[in-house]
Design a protein around this nucleic acid. Sequence first.
DNA 1: CTGATGCTGAAGCATAAGCTGAAGTATCAA
DNA 2: TTGATACTTCAGCTTATGCTTCAGCATCAG
Lengths: 115, 115
Amino acid sequence: MLQHQPPPALDPIFHALADPARRGMLERLTRGPASVSQLAEPLPMSLSAVVQHLAVLEASGLVTSRKVGRVRTCTLDTTVLSQAEKWINARRIAWERAFDRLGVYLAETKPADEA
Amino acid sequence: MLQHQPPPALDPIFHALADPARRGMLERLTRGPASVSQLAEPLPMSLSAVVQHLAVLEASGLVTSRKVGRVRTCTLDTTVLSQAEKWINARRIAWERAFDRLGVYLAETKPADEA
DNA sequence: CTGATGCTGAAGCATAAGCTGAAGTATCAA
DNA sequence: TTGATACTTCAGCTTATGCTTCAGCATCAG
């Protein structure tokens, strides 16, 4: 098991993304790896809370970490990030195709509404 | 207030996407508008539960609905869907840039690890 | 060894989520 | 009017989240 992990589920990925503190941590990680303390520093909460958010991020696969000495260094995993992106993109594309197939659905249901 | 709504927040969007039942409803909606009953039909839960999921989807802006007679028809809003997509894409791109800037970060930290 | 640093873990608690079932409100059909 | 249909709303329950504090436990510096 060295190069391909189980496919990351969408539930934990989107759940991880649904919190501003966690998105903040991810944004920080886009600027390079960071320690737990560094991730916690700008956030208005205890270190403990940050560690718990980190656990959510790691459970989703969005973040991986390694402990060296007493410092845990975290990095972003963009392949997992792109899983979420792909799902969204697929829905959007599918809907746009459906919209084309249906023609002007809205115009057909309500030809001259005020909205 | 007829053509541009308040910018949809990411929290409710990702939260809405974090549930398989809700994603199922969205997938159904990519094949065109549907009534509440139609959205509920394949789901292993009560109509009540589906209505509550629908409320979450509407709160996020991902879905809009209109009631005509006794039937509420729901449609997907892909502009909101693309908000989420944009955020993810931006992080991924930023990280890939950072990765380039840092050069082979991993190789530098652990030149010949077993992992 | 001693103390500071950087995390880790377990309680505990308040709020939010996800669900059910039961009762209620508008249609629409006959 | 009667009844079915299509939601809608609400009380109530269970579990999950998000947070805190406090108590550890390995580093690392001196």
